[in-house]
């Protein structure tokens, strides 16, 4: 049952693939042009996925499971968090990894289900544009955020987190 048919065994080396010398390289499956991007994307999904489990679980726990949970979330809460560079870096890393992970997942799904070339091109163009806009917007918000806002009279606004009082006065 397990005996091999000697005529079916191919030599390991020495014989080229059929018609390999007569076909334009762009039609060959072995072309090296797009191979490494998909490999990098495959590894990225696993590495970023593992990191995102930690990043998002801590994000959900610290925002929803401790203190007053959902009720504590307001302007002052965000301002208080981003006063700490660790949370700035945390949210920045989460933003970039989640957007790239999600965009690559959506790219895979578009490639799987959109059969027309023009449909794929359109959907992926919209996807990449949305991804770029959200990453740039989110990054700018994290780094240009001003927690201690003053009103026209120069007084601290009601929404400010408590640490602003020592910063402004």
């Amino acid at each position: 049952m397990t005996a091999t048919n000697s005529e079916a065994v191919l030599p390991a080396q020495g014989i080229e693939a059929p018609r390999s010398g007569r076909i334009d390289p762009k039609y060959l499956r072995s072309s090296a042009s797009s191979g490494s991007f998909e490999m990098v994307a495959w590894v990225f999904m696993r590495v970023s996925g593992a990191a995102l489990v930690v990043l998002i679980f801590v994000h959900l726990f610290s925002n929803l499971m401790v203190g007053e949970g959902i009720h504590q979330i307001d302007f002052a809460f965000v301002a208080g968090k981003w006063a700490n560079p660790v949370w700035q870096f945390w949210d920045l890393t989460m933003l970039w990894l989640a957007m790239l992970h999600g965009t690559n997942g959506m790219r895979t799904i578009i490639n799987d289900y959109a059969e027309k070339d023009s449909t794929r091109l359109w959907l992926k163009s919209i996807l990449y544009l949305a991804c770029a806009v959200i990453i740039i917007l989110g990054t700018l918000v994290i780094f240009t955020f001003e927690p201690c806002l003053l009103d026209d009279a120069g007084n601290l606004m009601d929404y400010s987190p408590s640490f602003c009082e020592s910063v402004v006065n």
């Binding site: 307001d74 302007f75 002052a76 965000v78 301002a79 933003l95 957007m99 959200i134 917007l137 989110g138 700018l140 918000v141 240009t144 955020f145 806002l149 606004m157 929404y159 400010s160």
Partner: peptide, 15 residues
């Protein structure tokens, strides 16, 4: 990301 970005518009808008 869009709703969080409202902290940059105004505290009232975010809240």
């Amino acid at each position: 990301v869009l709703d969080t970005s409202l902290v940059r518009v105004s505290p009232e808008a975010y809240d």
